[in-house]
Design a binder for these strands. Structure first.
Lengths: 227, 227
DNA sequence: GAGACTGCTGCCAGAATCTGGCAGTGGCAT
DNA sequence: ATGCCACTGCCAGATTCTGGCAGCAGTCTC
């Protein structure tokens, strides 16, 4: 096995452990000496991997994705850049920042001439209306990732307000509004909540009792066979 | 210099040459024997680089971007995936396909669990209106990349049609319409053309006499100081 | 067709790199 | 105080990489 592959494997093994892992056990798992493991960790950190080692504890990998060397065509890169620029203009400021950061990371590793081409890239996204949702969609995305319940006050189209506790599993981006798709405990059914009608958003510690993917799948089934 | 860096350098050198380059001269340029160069080429091809070698001629690299190993945070990947999904729903089918391909390439190199997470990713893009422009925006993008003139018939807001030859340098994506930004030979000024009012699009062989980046910069200056 | 040039592969010895073990330093938790 | 643990320098042996050589096949020029 080549060194490059081993480094990728190491990332995957680290990903699987949420608690700190000792270098010794990592070395064992990869069939490699502990000395080499330390070198591999150093190499990965040099490549920007957010691995943290603490004496007396072990190693932790902050969640993230490691991509191996990858080749894209002109159009594929254009598509990614355009898409990221669109995201960068979304009202969800945290996601927008992430898009900007991602573009910066890509630009940082490109040679000068390609970076210029990227900067001066000619696919532009029209500026969005500056409506902000009033709530932090980052909270919603995190709740979705961690499969935790959300509670908030929802004001429906008629103006009536109600307190909801929901199991969020998807976030839809439309032209003008963001929509949270969730199982509503009150209605005992799937419901869609426009982000601009949500207030008093509260991320709870409670995990909801079903898998996000399953909810997503069932919800899609209800869409395919509209009543 | 490590092998990995050398491979990246090789890609960059190949990028600079448009005509086929012989392995011997590439080897010289990189300070490496020709035998090693052949091995490097094989490695790059193994990684998916579109390098083509023909006996009696030399090597050509089909245009594209090579990204080194890269680390993204959760949110950065979410941003890229969401952005690419948005692009994948654009009416510009060629760009949309490129976005789909790019996502597939990323998914292909991820370990299984991450790939599932990506597939079941919970950020969705609302389906677009199915308006097609009637023209192939891929032609426009290619003309922009290659700095070539375009000619077409344009029907303005009043309904009056006119034949134009323009120097396209940017493409804007708005909620409902795509807009080509270009220097119009007829008006001798910058003009914006809504894609849905363009017909009889014709990509010419003629290069326009100015750099795309310069046009873009001047055009931006006109936007910053509106009359 | 002949010759020159080129891509491409197998082989092998020397060069370069990687690896594992050892010793040592310092931080952290019990 | 003791036991883990991260981390570094050092060095010999294992591994990989590299360069040179020989040989085959395809393309172009003359």
């Amino acid at each position: 096995m080549s060194r490059a592959e081993r480094l990728l494997d190491l990332i995957q093994i680290l990903r699987r452990h949420r608690r700190p892992v000792s270098g010794r056990s990592l070395a064992g798992e990869m069939g490699v000496s502990i000395r080499t493991l330390y070198r591999d960790i150093a190499t990965l950190q040099g490549q920007g991997a957010p691995i943290e080692g603490e004496a007396g504890l072990g190693y932790v990998l902050r969640p993230g994705f490691m991509l191996p060397p990858l080749m894209f065509t002109d159009e594929e890169i254009e598509a990614i850049v355009l898409g990221s620029r669109w995201v960068a203009k979304q009202p969800d400021w945290r996601l927008a920042n992430a898009a900007t950061d991602a573009l910066a990371k890509i630009a940082a590793v490109l040679p000068d001439d390609l970076r210029e081409e990227l900067d001066a890239s000619t696919l532009l996204v029209g500026s969005r209306t500056e409506v902000t949702e009033g709530i932090d969609l980052g909270v919603v995305r995190q709740a979705i990732r961690e499969e935790r319940k959300l509670s908030f006050v929802y004001r429906d189209a008629g103006g009536a307000a109600s307190e909801r506790t929901v199991w969020p599993f998807a976030l839809g981006f439309f032209d003008k509004v963001r929509v949270v798709a969730a199982w509503c405990e009150m209605r005992q059914d799937f419901r869609h909540f426009r982000a601009d009608r949500i207030s008093g958003l509260n991320a709870t510690e409670m995990r909801y009792p079903r898998r996000r993917q399953v909810l997503l799948k069932e919800w899609r089934a209800t869409l395919d066979t509209p009543t």
